[in-house]
Design a protein around this nucleic acid. Structure first.
Lengths: 137, 137
DNA sequence: TGTAAATTTGTATTGATTACATTTTATTAT
DNA sequence: ATAATAAAATGTAATCAATACAAATTTACA
């Protein structure tokens, strides 16, 4: 836990108990959770936790480049710790998100000349092996 | 307009007046509009138009592979006619969406072995030339 | 210890999307 | 042409993630 405090501090984030718990959850459950999933999970241990705090904290993490937002469709925003660039796959049947080891292509400077590119997201959608088998069985 | 009817029919969509108008709007305003923008634009000519109808029609277009959904962030879903695979750039300042001539990379079959991939989206975010100049002026 | 700043909380609101029942329009058989 | 049926369009209400905001709590430090 001490190490987590140091990580937060290195991103200019004061390591309060709630922030540590949310960071720990993201670190130890790399399941690209929604804000609500984080809230539901931590609520057991922190009964006073508020959903607003979860959103506040996630936004703070994002602003300080410790976490990122993954947008998979209009109804759910998911969160992930910042890491090597990679793609995501969403199973349209079970809604699980899988990491995919594909780099979002760097845009040719000529194609986005005079643009400032801060962020690239590459999203695939379809059926995961489990759901595929259930459908085509 | 006759040609648009034929296009709709070729996608198994009965070309009602409302559907033709929505198709025409998408075709002649390739600005990746939101459902609300489409509604606001057509409302002037079709005062009885309902927003539900816009959603219904867009979903029909998507189901019949005539249009696609572009998800840029949690609060806005945008729509686009199906075309050559390409990427999108969203300016975080003015919210405009630009087409980018970059193919979303086809996933290496070994990396998503046993997955069924239906759809790939590549999204860039940052500042467009105009907004960049306004910020850094 | 007391005061200011930072953090957390709870409630109310927003706004895009959907659910669904009703109404209108189009199609087809008689 | 008319009635019966199917398809399309409409309007209202509900949903739900996200945000706004003010109040309460905790922390820092003078």
């Amino acid at each position: 836990m001490q190490q987590y405090s140091d990580i937060l501090r290195s991103y200019d984030i004061k390591p309060s108990y709630t922030r540590l718990m949310i960071y720990q959850y993201l670190k130890e459950n790399q399941t690209h959770p929604t804000a609500d999933e984080i809230y539901q999970a931590l609520y057991k241990d922190i009964p006073t936790l508020s959903k607003t705090t979860v959103y506040n904290t996630l936004h703070l993490f994002i602003q300080n480049h410790l976490a990122t937002m993954i947008i998979m469709d209009q109804t759910e925003t998911r969160y992930d710790l910042v890491s090597e660039p990679h793609a995501h796959f969403k199973c349209m049947s079970c809604s699980k998100i899988f990491d995919v080891d594909v780099m979002p292509p760097k845009v040719d400077a000529r194609k986005l000349k005079d643009y400032i590119v801060n962020d690239a997201q590459l999203l695939y959608r379809g059926l995961c092996p489990k759901c595929k088998d259930n459908v085509t069985q």
